[in-house]
Write a protein that binds this DNA or RNA. Structure first.
Lengths: 331, 331
DNA sequence: TTGTAAGCGTTATCAA
DNA sequence: TTGATAACGCTTACAA
């Protein structure tokens, strides 16, 4: 069933059918109704591929996730979908598994006009590659920013968030604070490490690189890092981790060696994963406005779709430090 | 940069370029090399949309997930991607959020030939709708089966898995066993409830519908259900839940009222989520062969793509009961 | 207001 | 072995 068939059945030209489909003005009421009638009777749906080829546009936004293992992205996607559909865009999801080969493969969809824009939750590409692409296609970053890349982004102020978390530890009396970071999500990790550092220094506490350990985001690795922290000559009394999964690993290790979390040792995670509300103890964490991160990403990418040379906005959304049982201790 | 440009630059016809691109036999070595050279120099990539329109094929498989909140699907997707790429298929992910409106929208991609087949991790459609579609397009179900639908599927034997878990409880001496189920994933839930029931009956224990509670898959809801179980005149000494998230909720509630899990009360979950290895206590669970579920799904859908009228296979993959701290009790 | 026809980028048929 | 050309399904000048 193609537009030709509809035209024939309705006794009009394909152009008229196309006009009806696209709500073009200037079709006589009578013809319009006749065409609509036929369309209804036949359940005709215009072919997307034909249309895309002709219009060099797909009305699709590609969302690139680094992984499907992190439920963190679920709510962001909901925000994206909501706002996209308000603007009559569809969304397509791709998972890069942190591999640039895969990321590049999906980015070709832009060139083919199979997607009109991309929202990248994490890019493995280097700044130069991104800048090249961003000159040709609408690409925005959400949550993670590539240093040196000039494209729109939306995220929280990671440095400030870590700063506040660390300050909270300090205000509770902690003098030695450890950090479990990582080396996957460069931009947010570095910013959070910096916030941690500045909070210490602003409070007149010594900053020692040796109190920062880099994990691979698996809880098991956080357990190992936590062990190392405890084995230090002067072990910390509080630990900031860059993800809730790491906080869980840390807490698990602490419990296993009889350290009571929220009393002997405080822990703060990142992202407010749903498990933090049900873990034992419940876990203090930095919450990101996930839904809004999604909607704003869409606004940014649509702005670029409509005018590629629009100025690259960087938008910071507010975070929130959520205090739970894992930070009941006073040092 | 289109095939025409390449043809012009190489001094050949577009037909020849097309033949080279598609590895057609019967192109003189000399011409082939000349064309390849131009393609390399220009970084030319054939346009997918044009090709798809012409071939009525996209070499893409659409993966439909019910949600992005469940990391369960991550490894399945990896299996899918691996096997798909071995067969030169790409994959596209869509999230239905359990809404049939959304599911139907994505299924249109089949009609448009934007996807050659679909792997559905969960369908909201009724059997009749699925059968209609499956007559026209390659659709396979993975993990969840729609009763009355005639299409290929791959999953574990959910009834047997629940049977074994329940039998394990019984072998530990438990006489009253509760179940926290749900009403989202009909096929697996019903099968698991049935397995639970049969295990009780085969062991000469009474089966009482009142020991089965239906949650909404949120841990909070499992806490509530667990409270109800404990409030019964004769509370159970073991609980089987249809997901690990529910097991966590149950355990959290039990701990909150001073019931020691793995001693006073045993709990078994489903899916072997990574959190089950780090929760306190670690959680016994039924593990599904996720990666293989993915690869086999691809095999099935490709079989259908190649021959739609091939017989609908139903494949059962082996599960595994993994025992951890949450089942150390003896009643 | 409507229709004709060109063209989007391919592949595939047919003839040479 | 190669090339001209129709066709895939659609939109959009342009003409009528």
């Amino acid at each position: 069933m193609t537009i030709k068939d509809i035209a024939k059945l309705a006794g009009v030209s394909v152009a008229t059918v196309s006009r009806v489909i696209n709500d073009d003005a200037g079709v006589a009421e009578k013809l319009r109704n006749r065409v609509l009638q036929v369309i209804k009777e036949t359940n005709y749906i215009p072919n997307t591929v034909g249309r895309n080829l002709r219009k060099s546009k797909s009305d699709m936004i590609l969302v690139m996730l680094p992984t499907l293992s992190n439920p963190f992205y679920a709510k962001i996607l909901k925000g994206i979908e909501k706002r996209a559909s308000e603007h009559d865009y569809g969304i397509l999801v791709s998972v890069t598994h942190h591999e640039s080969r895969i990321e590049k493969k999906y980015l070709k969809m832009l060139q083919m006009k199979q997607a009109d824009g991309v929202i990248s939750l994490f890019s493995t590409l280097i700044a130069e590659e991104l800048n090249d692409l961003a000159g040709k296609y609408p690409i925005v970053q959400c949550c993670e920013y590539t240093e040196g890349a000039h494209l729109p982004y939306v995220m929280i102020d990671n440095k400030k968030a870590a700063y506040e978390a660390t300050k909270y530890f300090i205000s509770s009396g902690h003098k030695r604070i450890g950090m479990i970071s990582g080396s996957f999500y460069e931009s947010s990790e570095r910013a959070r490490e910096q916030g941690y550092k500045e909070a210490l220094m602003d409070s007149g506490l010594p900053f020692d690189e040796g109190y920062i350990f880099k994990s691979n985001y698996k809880p098991e690795s956080a357990m190992e890092m936590c062990r190392k922290l405890l084995d230090m000559p002067e072990p910390p009394t509080a630990v900031l981790t860059v993800s809730d999964t790491l906080a869980i690993g840390a807490i698990k290790y602490l419990k296993s060696v009889g350290v009571e979390v929220g009393k002997d040792m405080d822990v703060i995670g990142f992202d407010n994963a749903s498990i933090t509300r049900v873990y034992d103890p419940t876990i203090s964490t930095v919450s990101q406005p996930r839904y809004d991160l999604g909607t704003v990403s869409v606004d940014l990418v649509i702005e670029k779709i409509n005018n590629l040379s629009t100025v690259n906005k960087g938008i910071i959304l507010p975070h929130e430090l959520i205090l739970r049982e894992s930070t009941r201790g006073e040092a």
